[in-house]
Simulated scan of single mutants.
Amino acid sequence: MGDKVKDEQRIPVGISACLTGEEVRYNGGHKRSRYCLEVLGERFAFEPFCPELEAGLGVPREPIRMVGLEGEEPRVVGTRDPELDVSERLSTVSREFIARHRHLRGFILMKGSPSCGLERVKVYRPDNGMPSHSDAGAFVRELRRHFPELPLEEEARMNDAVLRENFITRVYAYDDWKRHLEDTPSYHELLQFHSRQKYQLMAHDVEAYRELGRYLADASKQPLEVSMAHYLERFMTALARPATRKSHANALMHVFGYLKTALDGETKQDLLAAIDDYRQGHVHLAVPIRLLSHYLKRHGSDYIRAQTYLNPHPYELGLRNTI
């Protein structure tokens, strides 16, 4: 997969420890993810964490589950011994982890776990022990509460090409933010970030693209930290919405607009046909992107060539060859 990425260039990403092969599950097993370790591991510097182990639950251990009524925060208790309530301990170790790991650019989670499950984790009724509804795991709820901008995804959901590409796009976009705005925050850097992420944003959420453009026009009237916090929250929320073929085609047409006057009629027709083939599902996104990039190299302005949308993550990962 191309040249090996140097350690200092890899992006720090959290991961449920069991996905790295660590034997930390309740039954002493693991859920090693080959894709994470062998493919993403070349690009990401993984930092494993198991909230249950950190909360003092040994290996092996009594399984835990979430219990509660709909509309209330579930408790996390033992499946055999409901007196074993680890809710507070899990909450504490999760918050301590977040405080120490603000440098992370994403987190890959274990599906179905009462601590690490992203969604659809069963919550049981306290009276009869029957499944009642579903929620996110206890660790995930703390991440969303105290680190809402952090990209999250379940390892199992990354079998879906669109969700996989979406998560990795968010990780790289957040890395761009951290590298350019964290140490040297300024209105100029904020506007530069928006400028290069514009069509990426448009492909995911055209309303957020318009709204943030309007917001930045007056952002300098507010304290910088207020403007940055508002922008980041809205931007990361917008990117979490997976782009569709229709929304990608819209962004591609806008990028194509920067080439209109530079190309002959036949070349323009070829590009438009590639975009339409993609929109109709006949080819993958890589096809129109490669064509556009080819002509933008020769005829595009610095502004359009700087768009992260054209190259949001390493080409070697091949993510746009499958969507």
Rank of each mutant, 00 (worst) to 15 (best):
A17R: 02
A273E: 12
P60L: 08
F139C: 01
L19P: 03
D176K: 04
A136S: 15
R144F: 08
R89T: 05
G28Y: 10
Y295G: 07
H146G: 07
G14N: 02
Y215E: 09
G78C: 07
L216P: 11
Q280F: 10
S293P: 08
V24R: 10
L224S: 06
R61C: 03
L118C: 05
Y231A: 01
G106D: 04
G28M: 06
M158I: 03
E225W: 11
E72R: 10
A251W: 00
E316K: 13
I108A: 01
I64N: 02
F167M: 12
S94C: 03
V86P: 06
I11N: 03
A262M: 12
E207W: 05
Q269M: 06
I323D: 11
Q280N: 15
V121L: 04
A219Q: 05
K31V: 06
I64C: 13
G28I: 05
R298N: 09
R234G: 05
D176V: 00
K198G: 13
P312E: 05
L263N: 07
P74E: 07
A161M: 04
R234Y: 06
D302E: 14
R290D: 14
A249V: 10
F44K: 02
K268Y: 02
D218R: 15
I323L: 13
A173L: 01
G71A: 08
A136M: 03
